[in-house]
């Protein structure tokens, strides 16, 4: 638990849906978590989880449209020591029932991003995207 996390804080930023944006997503997260004074180990884990979720948007929701000019939004909120990260995109609708990681003992490339997200976060929830958004993913973590 981070004792210094601020009680109420929200920031959001949009990013072009491209793999080249992932570095910018991480930079944004690190800056916000710096303000929230989240300790380094947890910060590294959270940045990984968020970057994996953003990567999933690029890799899956926009699989058929890799040169899109669409943007995705990442919103980080901290309220009463509960961190909530929202992702909004206008890609292919995600079927939550099909979002599964590979069996961890079946070692092969791929299928680890969702596993990392689930390991790091307390909850992963797909919500109905409100126009203009198609997908709305919410990750939560109690600090």
């Amino acid at each position: 638990m981070s004792e210094t996390a601020q009680s109420n804080h929200t920031e959001k930023k949009d990013f072009l849906v491209r793999s080249s944006s992932l570095k910018d997503v991480r930079t944004f997260c690190r800056e916000v978590f710096e303000k929230l004074q989240i300790e380094q180990n947890l910060k590294d884990e959270l940045v990984l989880a968020i970057a994996e979720a953003a990567q999933n948007i690029v890799k899956h929701a926009y699989k058929d449209d890799p040169k899109t000019d669409d943007k995705m939004v990442v919103q980080i909120s901290c309220k009463d020591n509960k961190l909530q990260i929202g992702f909004y995109d206008m890609g292919t609708p995600v079927d939550p029932n099909k979002v599964k990681h590979r069996e961890i003992d079946n070692v092969k490339p791929g299928g680890l991003g969702t596993f990392f997200i689930q390991e790091i976060m307390d909850a992963v929830e797909f919500k109905d995207g409100k126009k203009p958004w198609i997908n709305h993913l919410v990750l939560t973590k109690q600090l």
Binding site: L22, R26, V47, L48, A51, E52, Q55, V107, K108, P109, G110, L112, G113, F115, F116
Partner: peptide, 16 residues
């Protein structure tokens, strides 16, 4: 200093 699941996949594929 940072590696995500894609980087881990490169390590697995290299190993295999």
């Amino acid at each position: 200093q940072y590696m995500d699941s894609s980087g881990i996949s490169v390590l697995i594929e290299s190993h295999q």
